[in-house]
């Protein structure tokens, strides 16, 4: 069994030169449509009253849960990070959980998707870092604690991005593969347990991905904060 055969990238519906519309993209669009349509339907009649609909209640719990996590990790106002981290979590969760639908292949089982998301995190870290503390200050972080650490810092940045991509891809892909293998070996009942396990894994991986992304961004912010704090304390001491 070739691993390529089970990647949704390989299921191509339409191709024109380098442009190919494969299952990954189609399922991603389907998920996007589902999410946007669902959000639009749920938030159509939002009310600020004390009584609220079930859908609104569910969405509020989800959104508020994500905000609370962001707040816990970053110790900052979460609304700035909410669209990025929240979308990462919701997209990965939905794409993983839909695996119970027959014929569906999770876009996250494609390394292209996870790589794309990991590159997104790789870009978001400097984006938030520079927006927060300025270009120079952010770049200076790579020279900490000494200039000799620069290559290691860069390697660390790249490797964690790679790890992020491969971790998600590996878990989801392996889940799908194991389910397929067990289906071939014992087609009755047993795959149900594997599916249930796959759902749990999918949920956990989505959580891990989003949390790690937030941790990386928060780390970039906190270095700056810690330095500012140190500088302030030193100034106070010298004046005192």
């Amino acid at each position: 069994m070739d691993i390529k055969l089970l990647s949704p990238d390989q299921v191509i519906f339409w191709r024109w030169g380098p442009v190919s519309i494969n299952a990954t993209l189609v399922f991603t669009w389907a998920i996007m449509l589902l999410l946007v349509a669902g959000s639009w339907l749920a938030t159509r009649n939002l009310s600020g009253d004390l009584r609220l609909s079930r859908w609104q209640n569910l969405l509020e719990i989800v959104v508020d849960g994500i905000r609370q996590q962001i707040r816990d990790i970053s110790q900052r106002q979460p609304d700035k990070f909410l669209p990025f981290i929240g979308t990462l979590f919701i997209f990965i969760v939905v794409s993983n959980l839909l695996a119970v639908v027959p014929g569906y292949i999770a876009p996250t089982a494609s390394l292209s998707t996870t790589a794309g998301l990991a590159i997104g995190v790789f870009l978001a870290v400097p984006w938030y870092g520079i927006r927060d503390q300025g270009f120079k200050q952010y770049l200076r972080n790579y020279l900490q604690p000494t200039i000799f650490m620069l290559p290691f810092n860069i390697i660390g940045e790249l490797s964690r991005t790679l790890a992020l991509a491969v971790r998600l891809f590996g878990n989801i892909m392996s889940g799908a593969k194991i389910a397929a293998i067990f289906l071939a070996l014992a087609p009755l009942i047993f795959p149900i347990f594997m599916q249930a396990l796959g759902l749990l894994t999918g949920l956990i991986q989505a959580y891990i991905f989003a949390i790690l992304a937030m941790v990386y961004i928060a780390a970039a912010l906190r270095v700056h904060e810690g330095k500012q704090l140190n500088r302030k304390q030193k100034g106070e001491n010298s004046y005192g």
């Binding site: 190919s20 494969n22 991603t28 292209s112 790589a115 794309g116």
Partner: peptide, 14 residues
């Protein structure tokens, strides 16, 4: 294993 067009497309989609 990685289709770069898909990667870019997924980033845009995201």
């Amino acid at each position: 294993l990685i289709d770069w067009f898909t990667v870019v497309a997924q980033m845009v989609n995201f």
